[in-house]
């Protein structure tokens, strides 16, 4: 096993752990349980999804002649799903407002 493979395995394990925690949290709300196989499969699904969106994001940024992926690129991911777009737009707006507030606080001091 090469060093790169080991790194991939480590990343996937980390993702697995956090997917597990997230699923448990959601299951608690719904009064259900998830089998370890369910969590493992969902991790695999998320892993592939990360692969897809990372490459999409990179290409969106390149298309806009940028070398840095911005929030505009992430919003493009959700272009086909208006509801998802709305939820992500809210996160972007909140983040921007937070930054603006921080900047204002700094300049006052």
């Amino acid at each position: 096993m090469s060093a790169d493979d080991t790194e991939q395995e480590r990343l996937k394990s980390a993702l697995w752990y956090h997917v597990g925690k997230l699923v448990d949290d959601a299951c608690l709300d719904l009064n259900v349980n998830a089998t370890p196989q369910f969590i493992g499969s969902l991790t695999e699904l998320a892993w592939v999804q990360f692969d897809n969106i990372a490459k999409d994001l990179e290409n969106f940024a390149k298309h806009a002649n940028r070398s840095t992926v911005s929030t505009a690129d992430v919003l493009l991911l959700a272009r086909k799903n208006p509801d998802l777009h709305g939820l992500l737009q809210k996160v972007v707006d909140d983040e921007a407002a937070e930054r603006a507030a921080k900047a204002a606080g700094k300049s006052r001091r």
Binding site: V74, L77, V92, E95, A96
Partner: peptide
């Protein structure tokens, strides 16, 4: 900010 948004996604 993009990382944070991907996290939400």
């Amino acid at each position: 900010a993009a990382i944070k948004t991907v996290g939400e996604y």
